[in-house]
Design a protein around this nucleic acid. Structure first.
Lengths: 229, 229
DNA sequence: CCAAGATTGGAACGTTGTTCCATTCCATCT
DNA sequence: AGATGGAATGGAACAACGTTCCAATCTTGG
């Protein structure tokens, strides 16, 4: 028996990242600690550092793993360029909805580590569709930048509401309700506009609001840079 | 002398927040610790907790203090609604440029603490101008949401580039250069679009790119919801 | 002047990311 | 098969952090 059976419980970067995602999903961003991760993998915290440089790299890897599947499945569908952009954006939105920690992560990822791999992935997915809008090449950069910035901004702001797919809308409802109530109680001299829209926050649909913003940005790209096809 | 002179070095929430902003500016987000803050204020870390509940509240207060002055000075000027929206956005942009930590903070603030005071401030500033675009009331919420999400998304992504006003463009230049180089080296099969726009990242103007996005969103709002005035 | 509350500041606690290193595993060579 | 050396492990230890606690000190009203 020259080659004994390889141990199936051996550590690897992939297993670590996978466990990190599970831990983030179940315990939140503050729940991801090297000790909890080591316990879940039945090893010591020090061993993880052989496969992962530090916590930042681990977070980046977890983010990339999740974004990667969100952007690759399903293959973007839709008849018009606008519909295909909505499909890409919706894929990201649902990934954020599934993983409550992802929104905050995406919103600051490029700032924290501009050399990571998730930024070009997102840019590529949106940029290809922006190109099909008929935008001339010199405007590709600004147009895609606007779209990506909107999506990542919405990601960061809506991160709290994540997890609504499971039907536990109770938390979300009371949560939005408390925000709406707080906004309605603001000084009417200083905050007339906020008070006017506070009611809409109570019963709005996050997904619809998100897609509405995508439509606005796409319409803006076409209006400013685009040609009508 | 029944009333002795009041000590001028007494702690107060304002002095603490002011010192926190200075510490964030000079030492970055990781430089803000209760120990460093206590040393700067010539006191103990425990004393700070009499005026500030915890670090999150301190960060919120620092953010609000900076955003507050950014949105109130100067009084928004401009002939058209679009120009006034640009003025509001530019005020925020320059605050982020002055305070490198602010971008990441804003990008996740609403998610972290939806009841804080900075979100309604930003919504009010933009919302008032959106109203003057001629958007009908039912669309105020979606339109302002799109604009705010774009601005905060751009804030989070551009946070690294902050500090360019002082003229030390060397860091920024080499930094963007390394990003551009990394993007140019990506697989041409998987990343054709990113490679095509990588060159534009090297010599683009952040401010111009940011404002270009604002124009796109404003044009989109008008195209989707607005009336021509 | 004196009590009572407000405020201070330093010590201490628990937790975190990370480093260090002795030990174990495993593929390869003789 | 047995030795060898690098790959990999895991537990202890360290520094730093947010936070709590409390004795000491100020400040104010009677």
């Amino acid at each position: 028996m020259t080659s004994r059976t390889r141990r199936t419980d051996a550590l690897s970067r992939e297993r670590i990242v996978e466990a990190a995602v599970e831990l983030l999903d179940s315990a939140g961003e503050s729940g991801l600690t090297f000790r909890a991760l080591a316990e879940r993998l039945a090893t010591g915290a020090g061993a993880l550092y052989w496969h992962v440089a530090n916590k930042g790299e681990l977070l980046d890897a977890a983010t990339e793993a999740v974004v990667s599947v969100a952007l690759s499945t399903p293959p973007v569908s839709g008849d018009t360029p606008g519909e295909r952009i909505r499909a890409v954006a919706l894929g990201l939105y649902e990934a954020i909805d599934r993983h409550a920690w992802l929104g905050a992560q995406l919103a600051t990822q490029f700032a924290r580590n501009p050399l990571n791999a998730v930024a070009p992935r997102i840019w590529e997915s949106f940029g290809r569709q922006v190109r099909t809008l008929g935008v001339p090449e010199p405007a590709w950069f600004h147009s895609t930048s606007a779209l990506v910035n909107y999506v990542l901004g919405a990601a960061g702001q809506n991160a709290v509401n994540a997890g609504g797919a499971q039907g536990r809308t109770g938390d979300r409802g009371t949560h939005l309700d408390s925000v709406a109530t707080a906004w309605e109680r603001l000084d009417s001299e200083s905050y007339p506009f906020v008070r006017a829209v506070a009611g809409q926050i109570r019963d709005h649909d996050d997904r619809e609001q998100f897609l509405s913003g995508v439509d606005i940005v796409v319409a803006g790209i076409v209006a400013v840079h685009g040609r009508v096809l």
